[in-house]
Design a protein around this nucleic acid. Structure first.
Length: 567
RNA sequence: UGUCCCAUGGUGUAGUGGUAGCACAUCUGAUUUUGGUUCAGCCAGCCUAGGUUCGAGUCCUGGUGGGACAACCA
């Protein structure tokens, strides 16, 4: 107990509103001071960054206050669900670093939910409606107009009871019959206008097979499942606020003791340049517009994982955005900042050249090879160093050279000294062009006294270039992955086909690069001609050593601005 | 012509009724063998009108603006 108090003292100022509620409940001794949450995904798709926010609060609350968080699959609609999704969801939660107490399935509660439904019928609080979906919808009214009662609303209890049995035997066709709670067709809350709680679905369930024909609806299953499990704090997103009175209504009908779960809602995550709708993400996968749920451009947990994001970076991001009831849109640059911050400390650096042009050190001996030491990570000495070969002929990035450069161009241009990283200071003496004016070779002279580590190497030069030996290098296919969408808010215009807003396919470049095995940083270019620094991530699914250029964690494109200003 | 939720710099978030902080983004400067990092700094905010109060971002009321709700989805 004292431990909990200490935690709360320390974090008092940064408590989010859910934590405030939990602490108040704890202080009041609610539910015997027990804290239990649940993460309840429907297994109908892969988890995305929005789910990460829910996961962090569900598991985080349990962790922080000494409670447990269970994983529950809300599998009440067999048509959309699949074990593939169950497996991926578990994998992604584990990758984020969380452990659930138990794994539950709403489908485990089908018998108890059935009994509860029968009880409601017997109490006269539920009835079988034999109208069509259209008729029921029509009678529902609108938010500003009361609904009208179904002609079946007051049928005898026994009749409903026997029809309900038939709903589950297969003799009732889909859509011919539903079970409805009898509440209030004139309620200002649409969810109270005799909500449907059971419907017939003739589709095998991924866990219960063909045992059931009648399946409970979300509203009838969720709160009840919370109650069965002993959940104390049922945390979900804002769109369920209007469901809460119904959640409470069912709980009151169901509960037999002092305990009851309570629902609390927080704001869903919206990110610029990002579509989070599962339906749309599924569409991208099905239409092969991406390579799969784990395509590095996807906002899925596994997509980010393949892209090189760490679990820690996701946590940092979620910590920064907080939990409130305000519906906003978070700038994706905050996510990118969190990733850079984390990767900057961890990522080993290597040099790479994506668009090579030959640089010849004219006064360097033919055939000579020197081994240069390159620090793996300037932020972390313990990561050591690696050696790279320096030779007379090198490759540098084509855009690291300009024949007629503006003043603020700090890289290679005739007459200007630059440093070749980890090697010598060189001075450009000229270049050779073909008939079209395309640069073929660049010439420079090196100063032998300026090798890294020697006293002369401390001379100040404005630019430092990455380079690769023309003789000793490794070629790899590099993919430049951009943001999936090229507009700030692809959700804005709902009538527009969101697929039109997709960025064109990733750019594939054959390049010379020298690389270490894992996550590395390197100088590179994106396909918008902005020089950037970015993080490479070796695609773990690729045996051929492909690199994924992590464009969205790329750094400031200051060079592009310099050019704009100068011209 | 309904019910419910929400409103603090460009963005996101803190603020027991008592000096409105923080982060991202932008911009400026310093350091730097990554135009990265790091450091310093600039710019910029309580939707509105009343009320309660010695004192309101905070409490109350009315506006205004945004969002949710009319699936046999979750």
């Amino acid at each position: 107990m004292s431990e909990i108090n200490n935690i709360t003292e320390e974090n008092k100022k940064s408590l989010n509103f859910i934590e405030v509620i939990v602490e108040k409940d704890l202080a009041e001794g609610k539910n015997d001071r027990r804290i239990q949450t649940r993460f309840p995904p429907e297994p109908n798709g892969y988890l995305h960054i929005g789910h990460a926010k829910a996961i962090c609060i569900d598991f985080g609350i349990a962790q922080k206050y000494g409670g447990i968080c269970n994983l529950r699959f809300d599998d009440t609609n067999p048509v959309k669900e699949d074990v593939e999704y169950v497996d991926s969801i578990m994998e992604d939660i584990k990758w984020l670093g969380y452990e659930w107490g138990n794994v539950y399935y709403a489908s485990d509660y089908f018998p108890r939910l059935w009994d509860f439904a029968v009880e409601l019928i017997k109490k006269g609080k539920a009835y079988i409606d034999e109208q069509s979906a259209e008729e029921i919808a029509r009678q529902k009214g609108t938010p500003t107009q009361a609904g009208t009662e179904s002609p079946f609303r007051n049928r005898p209890v026994e009749e409903s009871l026997s029809l309900f049995q038939k709903m589950n035997t297969g003799e009732i066709e889909e859509g011919k019959m539903v079970l409805r709670a009898k509440i209030d067709m004139a309620s200002s809350n649409m969810h109270f206008r005799d909500p449907i709680i059971y419907r017939v679905i003739n589709h095998p369930h991924h866990r219960t097979g063909t045992t059931w024909k009648a399946y409970p609806m979300y509203d009838f299953a969720h709160g009840e499942s919370d109650y069965f499990e002993g959940v104390t704090h049922s945390i979900c997103t804002l769109e369920f606020v209007v469901h809460r009175p119904l959640y409470d209504w069912f709980i009151e009908e169901l509960r037999t003791d002092g305990y009851r779960p309570n629902q609390y809602e927080f704001n869903r995550l919206n990110l610029t340049y990002t579509v989070m709708s599962k339906r749309k993400l599924l569409q991208l996968v099905k239409e092969n517009l991406v390579t799969g749920w784990d395509d590095p451009r996807m906002p899925t947990i596994c997509g980010y994982r393949r892209r090189g994001y760490t679990p820690e970076s996701i946590h940092k991001f979620i910590d920064k955005i907080g939990y409130t009831k305000y519906d906003g849109v978070i700038d994706v640059s905050l996510l990118e900042y969190a990733v850079r911050e984390d990767l900057n400390a961890k990522a080993p650096r290597i040099s790479a050249v994506l668009d090579p042009v030959k640089l010849i050190i004219t006064n360097y001996p033919e055939g000579k090879v020197e081994m240069m030491e390159a620090i793996n990570n300037p932020e972390d000495e313990s990561m050591g160093s690696h050696e790279i070969e320096f030779t007379k002929e090198l490759y540098i990035e084509r855009e690291d050279f300009m024949e007629d450069a503006p003043k603020k161009f700090f890289r290679m241009t005739p007459g200007q000294e630059v440093r070749l990283k980890n090697a010598y200071i060189v001075k450009c003496t000229g270049c050779k062009k073909d008939e079209n004016g395309i640069i073929q070779e660049i010439y420079a002279e090196y100063d032998p006294m300026t090798r890294s580590g020697m006293p002369e190497s401390n001379r100040k030069v404005k630019g430092t270039l990455h380079w690769v030996s023309a003789e000793y290098n490794i070629q790899a296919e590099v993919r430049l992955y951009d943001r999936l969408f090229n507009v700030e808010n692809p959700n804005e215009d709902k009538d527009k086909d969101f697929r039109e807003l997709l960025n064109p396919d990733s750019l594939k470049v054959l390049t010379n690069c020298r690389m270490e095995k894992f996550v590395v940083t390197a100088k590179a270019y994106d396909n918008f001609q902005f020089q950037r620094l970015g993080y490479f991530n070796v695609d773990p699914d690729s045996k051929s050593g492909k690199l994924i250029f992590n464009r969205t964690v790329s750094l400031k494109d200051s060079w592009s601005k310099i050019v704009k200003n100068e011209n």
